[in-house]
């Protein structure tokens, strides 16, 4: 009987020890280390995504035991021609636009304030950053109580001047303002952090040179400060737009989408279609349309990141 060559031994390992050695070979170690993350990603993200994508082409309701039947693009057509969907997109756009602008203004002003040294700066900075570290539910409940017209702080304060309770959430405009303020309160510190990072990266000698040239405050801002922070501002805009586009928790807790459907964002609407009406396929189609919008925004975000890297380089 001829002895086995080293090549044969590698191809056919003997016992568990041999398999382990084969598995831990240097060329397999990398994929092996990454494998758990890939498996989790597949099970938790990729598989559900593919599954729900498939469902969007079938007529299926999760609370019925009927056999799903293939309907092609019918639900995409239905979603895109549903006036309710476009109404919720418009509501979302109003909330996103208002909230992101407010966050940018407040975040920018806060960044300008914290770019300088002053007494108790660090403590104040921690306090200002606190809202973005809270959970959405806490913020939602806090603002719901804050706006409560019978005993809420806002109403108590306003009524000292007007003598009447202040009912902010009783009108569509008031309810949108309430949502926007709550979201901006929570996320303006995030914008501030990004802008602050840009502000501290501006070389001091540029300001010194501008001082010598007696440049005005506006000119210094326009020609020195803004170029350094503009890509970070763009990042902030895109990141907050993507996040606010998916706004659910705060809306659901503060107004439940009311009055009527005045503050029902597309995320809340999708939730209702999926988990209250159990129109599973329709909600899947809607979710993929939202995903498409988010992917477009994300690509813009990545483009902005790339530009920022090029500028830094």
């Amino acid at each position: 009987m001829a002895a086995a060559s080293p090549h044969d031994r590698m191809a056919a390992p003997e016992g568990a020890g041999g398999f382990l050695a084969w598995l831990m070979a240097p060329e397999r170690r990398g994929p092996l280390l990454v494998a758990p993350a890939v498996i989790v990603l597949f099970v938790m993200n990729i598989f559900p995504l593919l599954w729900s994508f498939g469902l969007s082409f079938f007529n299926y309701r999760a609370n019925r035991q009927d056999v799903p039947d293939f309907v092609g693009l019918r639900f995409y057509e239905r979603v895109l021609s549903d006036p309710d969907v476009w109404d919720r997109f418009q509501t979302t756009a109003v909330i996103v636009g208002s909230s992101v602008v407010l966050q940018l203004v407040i975040g920018f002003l806060l960044a300008l304030m914290f770019a300088r040294e002053f007494p108790l700066r660090r403590i104040l900075l921690m306090l200002v950053l606190a809202p973005m570290m809270l959970s959405f539910v806490s913020v939602g409940v806090f603002f719901k109580l804050y706006y409560e017209p019978t005993f809420g702080l806002l109403s108590q304060f306003v009524s000292t001047f007007t003598g009447e309770p202040f009912v902010l959430l009783g009108t569509p405009t008031g309810a949108i303002v309430g949502i926007v303020v709550a979201d901006a309160w929570m996320w303006s510190p995030f914008v501030m952090l990004l802008v602050l990072a840009g502000l501290v990266s501006v070389p001091k000698y540029l300001y010194e040179a501008a001082e010598i040239d007696r440049a005005s405050w506006w000119r210094r801002f326009r020609t020195i400060t803004f170029p350094y922070i503009k890509s970070l501002l763009l990042l902030a805009v895109l990141f907050r737009t993507i996040e606010t586009f998916k706004l659910f928790d705060i809306v659901y807790i503060i107004t439940e989408g009311g009055p009527g459907t005045a503050t029902e964002t597309i995320a809340v609407f999708t939730y209702r279609v999926a988990f209250q009406f159990f129109r599973t396929s329709q909600s899947s189609a809607l979710a993929y349309i939202i995903l498409f919008v988010v992917i477009v925004l994300t690509n813009l975000y990545l483009y902005a990141v790339k530009r920022r890297e090029q500028e830094v380089a």
């Binding site: 409560e148 017209p149 019978t150 109403s155 309770p165 009912v167 959430l169 009783g170 309810a175 107004t255 439940e256 009311g258 009055p259």
Partner: peptide, 9 residues
Amino acid sequence: MPPVAQTGQ
């Protein structure tokens, strides 16, 4: 009723 009635909540 209390003004919260005007908010539908």
